[in-house]
Amino acid sequence: MARLWLLLLLAVSLPVAALDTGKPFRDYVTDTWGVDQGLPQISVLAITQDPAGYLWFGTQTGLARFDGVRFVRYTQRDAPELGNNILALLADDDDRLWIGTAQGLLLLEDQRFHAIAPTVADHPAPASALLKLDGRILAGCAEGICTPREGKLQRVQALPDPALSLLARGDGLWAGGQGRVFHIAGGKVRTLPLPA
């Protein structure tokens, strides 16, 4: 069952060509990968692809890079700040991997992990969403929307709830919260409740 979820997650997350409706499903080749093939844990919480083509998976017990054949795992031994629950991943064009965890934000650059200090010193908070917009990295944080500057997270938009997801559109920035959505445009925040 876990492999099916990973396969479905990959199918939803990655662009693919449409299936030939006249061809039986059994004629298609599928591959599945799980813990037996090196995935750190079966609950994949985040996926991204870097410019070199590697797939990165964030799980409840660590981070993994997949080259199409094998997984390379990264755990707390590689970076104590990794902790558990990799919540968000973003690979940028500068060969950097941004990692949102339950403990905060990390950067993997030149094969080294760097912790980004939280907005409030000695008070780690989850970085649950990541987005690159207009050349800067945005992170969903407990205070709303933050950006890393000089090794520290700084709030750029206060919200009444943590930003759990981020989406940039032509009409502004959207942030998902707990039971509601925030639309940010022109420096103003509009709150929209989710249906019951």
Rank of each mutant, 00 (worst) to 15 (best):
A2F: 10
W5F: 15
L8P: 10
L9K: 11
L10V: 07
V12G: 14
V12A: 10
L14W: 08
A17C: 09
A18Y: 13
D20N: 15
D20Q: 12
T21H: 14
K23W: 02
P24D: 10
F25M: 15
V29D: 14
V29G: 11
T30L: 14
T30W: 05
D36K: 08
Q37N: 13
Q41R: 12
Q41H: 07
Q41V: 03
S43N: 15
S43C: 11
L45Y: 07
A46R: 02
I47V: 13
I47T: 13
T48H: 06
Q49C: 13
D50R: 00
P51F: 13
P51K: 08
G53F: 13
Y54R: 14
L55P: 02
W56Q: 10
W56P: 05
T61M: 08
T61E: 11
R65L: 03
F66K: 06
R70M: 12
R70T: 15
R70Y: 06
F71S: 03
R73W: 11
R73Y: 03
D78G: 05
A79F: 04
E81H: 12
N84W: 05
L89I: 05
L89Q: 00
L89K: 00
D92H: 05
D93L: 06
D94I: 07
D94K: 14
D95Q: 12
R96S: 07
R96L: 04
L97Y: 00
L97R: 01
T101S: 03
A102Y: 09
Q103H: 06
G104C: 01
G104E: 06
L106S: 01
L106W: 04
L108Y: 05
E109P: 08
D110V: 07
Q111S: 15
Q111W: 14
R112Q: 11
H114F: 03
T119C: 13
D122W: 06
D122E: 03
D122I: 06
H123E: 12
A125C: 05
L131D: 01
K132L: 04
R136L: 11
R136H: 05
I137P: 05
A139L: 06
A139S: 08
A142G: 06
A142P: 15
I145Q: 01
C146H: 05
T147F: 01
P148V: 10
E150M: 11
G151K: 05
G151V: 00
L153T: 02
Q154C: 10
Q154H: 15
Q154P: 14
R155K: 10
Q157T: 07
Q157M: 07
Q157C: 02
Q157L: 10
A158F: 09
L164G: 01
L166Y: 00
A168M: 05
G170I: 08
G172Q: 00
G172R: 02
L173I: 10
W174I: 03
W174F: 00
R180K: 09
R180S: 09
I184R: 03
G186V: 04
G186F: 02
V189P: 00
T191L: 08
L192N: 03
